[in-house]
Write a protein that binds this DNA or RNA. Structure first.
Length: 361
RNA sequence: UGUCCCAUGGUGUAACGGUAGCACACGGGUUUUUGGAGCCCAUAGCCAAGGUUCGAAUCCUUGUGGGACAA
């Protein structure tokens, strides 16, 4: 493919992806804008407020930019894929008393795999997104590195991308900071887009009430997730909980239990329908196991490898060693880490480079 | 039934007779491409009725509600 070939740009309607498309267009690429429709708010009347990436407003904003700059824009209906890969996992994880990490799956399967299928159809070799990160290549391996804007680093949610996906990806915002991108949007006259607030909450649950969402999606919710006991580590009953999906490891708020010192969710026991509570100290552990591992920079992990591991999105990371174990990876931290949560992702780095990641067992 | 002890926000507790404070919980905000954490702010109380005193959560009396001894 020539340098200035066709490229598919995923446009959410937000500043980041808008400027990404703009930059590529300026650089002479043959840009095709795509806005993915992964969810239908109207069919799940939790709220009329549409704040997520699939709202009409967002689609319109993306289209407006495409029209202004003069490149084609399509809407891609990925609701089925989204249901299959993201929603179903979201529900089953809660059923298993785990805490799902939908953004990671959405990136891997929707924003990349499904989008690349569309790219094939449109004869595009590359796709681009508005992430603040670098794609690098080391011999035959492709890997993501953190962007220059560390506070805006999104690499944590990108660990699941396959080599195939990575080899066809471009991140036009890699060298920029969020502030610079906003300025570019303003300077180009896209004030409305530049001033949009950051997205937050789970995109398919705009009212942020994910228990309400589960209630609507799970048959006989009350029977599946009955009330039960809060207990301490010795099994002493401390109070009543409202059903396992209301809790996640490390949670403090909403326990409605006054112990004189802060109490946190330390464990969630599906077998006995108990939520174990304890003090902050009880949250620390010094190792964890990962499943569904995907590797970026190296084709395999050598036992004892030194890395930095992030265990949640906003986590500065903890030095650790990796070991192959039972087809997954065991992470042994140099210092204890708080609230390691089953279902969340652990991503390991070497400097700014992603070595790989996996789901916490 | 006799003696003794206790009673303070939603919970657990402080306050020589001199402005009722703390922790936790709850609520709000901040933050964030997930959940959670963190940080900031706020609401809220002297069991009841009398009395002593310039002044009572504090001392006295009675009542009410708990608890411990006592047969």
């Amino acid at each position: 493919m020539s340098k200035n070939g066709k490229i598919l740009v995923a446009m959410s309607g937000g500043v980041d992806s808008s400027v990404a498309a703009m930059l590529l267009h300026e650089q002479g690429y043959d840009v095709i804008g795509i806005t993915m429709k992964v969810w239908d708010y109207a069919s799940f009347g939790g709220t009329t407020k549409e704040t997520g990436c699939c709202s009409l407003d967002s689609i319109n904003d993306a289209r407006y930019l495409a029209v202004q700059l003069g490149f084609p824009h399509y809407i891609l209906d990925l609701r089925e894929d989204f249901e299959k890969h993201v929603i179903s996992n979201f529900i089953s994880e809660y059923k298993n008393a785990r805490t799902p990490n939908p953004c990671v799956l959405c990136n891997t399967h929707i924003k990349w795999e499904a989008l690349l299928r569309k790219a094939d159809m449109l004869d595009c070799e590359f796709i681009a997104t508005g992430h603040y990160a670098f794609i690098n290549q080391l011999q035959d391996r492709f890997y993501i590195s953190k962007g220059n804007d560390e506070i805006k680093d999104q690499s944590y949610v990108l660990w699941g991308l396959t080599q195939q996906s990575l080899s066809r990806t471009m991140f036009p915002l890699n060298i920029y900071s969020k502030t610079e991108i906003k300025e570019m949007a303003l300077n180009s006259g896209y004030d409305a887009i530049a001033k949009k607030s950051e997205s937050y909450e789970i995109c398919f649950i705009p009212d942020n009430d994910y228990r309400g969402f589960l209630k609507r999606r799970v048959d006989d919710f009350d029977a599946q997730f009955p009330e039960g006991n809060f207990v301490d580590k010795n099994g002493k009953i401390l109070g009543k909980h409202k059903g396992l999906p209301f809790y996640t490891i490390g949670q403090r708020k909403g326990l409605d239990i006054a112990m004189g010192v802060p109490y946190y969710v330390v464990d969630i026991k599906k077998s006995t329908n108990e939520v174990v509570l304890g003090e902050k100290e009880a949250l620390y552990s010094d190792s964890t196991e990962l499943i569904g591992v995907n590797l970026h920079k190296y084709a395999e992990i050598t036992d004892g490898m030194d890395v930095l591991v992030k265990v949640r999105y906003k986590d500065p990371g903890t030095a650790a060693k990796l070991f192959n174990k039972n087809g997954g990876i065991e992470v042994v931290f140099n210092n204890p880490v708080s609230a390691i949560t089953p279902g969340q992702s652990a991503v390991f780095y070497e400097g700014k480079d992603i070595i790989g990641g996996g789901f916490i067992r």
